[in-house]
Design a protein around this nucleic acid. Structure first.
Lengths: 356, 356
DNA sequence: CTGTTAGCGCTTTCAG
DNA sequence: CTGAAAGCGCTAACAG
């Protein structure tokens, strides 16, 4: 089919214009007469011309490349390690979808946890690829060294979200809001004795979520978080044990928030073992969504952060900024912000019993 | 740190050689004196030089880029759609690991199912990126149009595996071997009444696996596959119903192979509902591995295809071929083939009862 | 609005 | 073994 060398030159010749005009058409520059544009577009179509990505980013300012940086280990390794990790598959797909639609290319780069090595790796990637934008994925948004390296080169940076810390907005997914929303949801149903079972691989993430949960409880004067909040990453077994401990005495949680699918299932098992009914005796909410939650008995509700969509939205913002810089047509806003919380209502949640 | 413009020229100047020599050092050409090489390497280190990927693939023959092509939808969408799909996260990680180690870049491209569109998209990507190698992921290896487009350009092509069909090797993962191995494992334990529950989203894949299973059974004169083989994609509920049907009569399977994690759990539930013990009354094997299998009661064994590792191996082969072409130092073999089957022994399997 | 002129950073010739 | 010359395909900067 396509011979190995249809260049902008060939298109120009076929359309009877200079290659510069062709270039302008490709880059959607408004400074081209409608007539010329049409002829060029026809020529492009007939010749099957496709711009060469490498050449494009050579002389040019833009590279049409986005770089997603992930921390080594953040995606998990074996089959057993997905829970509580970055859903890279969803992110890849969402990113690809949005990039290819805009003619961009998306590259992933894995960097080591160790600060000096990681920074060096990022720098390498940055100079090798000269991307138009970079997405720092959790928990890398915290790394000021990385942010500095990126911004120092004048490369646009995006993260998966934003949260408020000590009164000011910092990049990063709003984990606190997640913990708070889940707790609030249960509080609104009348629950006061609400437990929180941690399970994420990222302790900071857990901490922020727990903090949000505590906030919500404190606002209702509940002191449950003093008794029913786990901390540190719990394994399946540990979570089950803990849930058993909590659910055995008379004063026990009427609702539990489980940080991962894994620990949610563990809590469910513990409840079953103790002859407790979910949701009649205990309501249960997971903070991530997985297929197994949907087919548990009963199906478990989830509040979760749609990482795939958030990642796609970050790509879109990056692309929008790039386009705006190129052609400052006051396009204004662009994509509306992606909701960073999603509620999947299933049967594991109900109103609190009258008296506790 | 790194100023925005350290080029091969700068390195040459610092090392007192021409940029050509620097280029040779970067590309590991043997035609450089040890002394020159060392001086250049030092200069590279002190200056923190990093070759520009775009420039490299411009004039040059090699692009140091690998392209992985996936079918739109092959990775699944929501949280509930992972079972039976491509584990893109594991593939991405494995590919990244091996590419970055070799100084290559890995790009993913999603193409539509529809043949003409998909082919056009692939062609676009091919001319835009001019990758050194392409990996066609399942079920795209079957597409002769895609293979033709790739090979027609002289680009190296790799798939995740190879299987024999009608006596000759064709690209693609050996699903038949998987079904056969699982059945054989059970036959070796004395089972004869072995069931097979399908669940994959790819009907062709299921068919090949079932065929392998039938082969194994036929070799032992078992006729179980006439009664206990499902076909078509079963949902969780359907799989559970089917398992109940099979497990109720007197003549019933003593072992069941479940194609996905989802249907494996369904079978397990059915067994429990009927008061049957796994593995005492029924052995159970899944053909994919997921965390939930490990914490099921009892933990479920799995025979599975390590897609991540297979993908990484494909990347390695591609890179090896590229290097060999550049420098035909009879390196011979290179990476030994990645085993395409993995057995995860857990407690759901045991010997067949004496009489059935 | 359009064409011309220079490169981008690297690699491939091809001579030394 | 090493260097010099000549682009790769495209785009920014200028002139028209």
């Amino acid at each position: 089919m396509t011979r190995s060398a249809i260049t902008i030159e060939d298109v120009g010749k076929a359309a009877g214009v200079s290659r510069q005009t062709v270039s302008r058409v490709i880059n959607r520059s408004p400074k081209v007469s409608a007539k010329a544009r049409q002829r060029v577009e026809e020529a492009i179509a007939t010749l099957g011309y496709v711009p060469n990505a490498a050449a494009r980013r050579m002389g040019g300012a833009r590279s049409f490349t986005l770089l997603a940086v992930i921390e080594r280990g953040a995606g998990g390794a074996g089959a057993g390690e997905r829970a509580g990790r970055l859903p890279l598959d969803a992110m890849l797909l969402a990113g690809l979808e949005c990039c290819s639609a805009a003619g961009y290319h998306l590259l992933f780069e894995q960097i080591d946890r160790s600060p000096p090595t990681g920074l060096a790796q990022l720098n390498r990637a940055l100079t090798a690829l000269s991307p138009d934008g970079v997405i720092l994925t959790p928990p890398l948004e915290e790394r000021t060294d990385l942010r500095g390296a990126i911004e120092g080169r004048g490369v646009t940076l995006e993260c998966l979200g934003e949260r408020t810390e000590f009164g000011r907005a910092v990049p990063g997914i709003d984990d606190g809001a997640l913990g708070e929303a889940a707790a609030q949801h249960l509080l609104d149903l009348g629950h006061r004795q609400i437990g929180f079972v941690t399970g994420s691989v990222d302790p900071q993430r857990s901490e922020r979520r727990v903090a949000g949960y505590r906030r919500a409880l404190a606002s209702k004067r509940s002191r449950a978080h003093r008794h029913f909040a786990a901390d540190g990453r719990l394994s399946f077994q540990e979570a089950r044990e803990l849930a058993r401990t909590w659910l055995t005495p008379t004063i026990r949680p009427t609702a539990i928030i489980a940080e991962t699918e894994e620990v949610a299932i563990a809590v469910l098992e513990a409840a079953h073992e103790l002859g407790l009914d979910v949701p009649r005796d205990v309501s249960l909410i997971a903070l991530e969504d997985r297929a197994s939650l949907a087919r548990a008995t009963p199906p478990i509700s989830a509040f979760h952060q749609p990482y795939g969509a958030l990642f796609g939205a970050a790509c879109e913002r990056l692309i929008a900024k790039g386009e705006k810089q190129a052609e400052p047509t006051g396009d204004g806003e662009g994509a509306e912000p992606q909701a960073s919380l999603e509620w999947i209502g299933r049967e594991s949640v109900t109103k609190a019993p009258r008296s506790v």
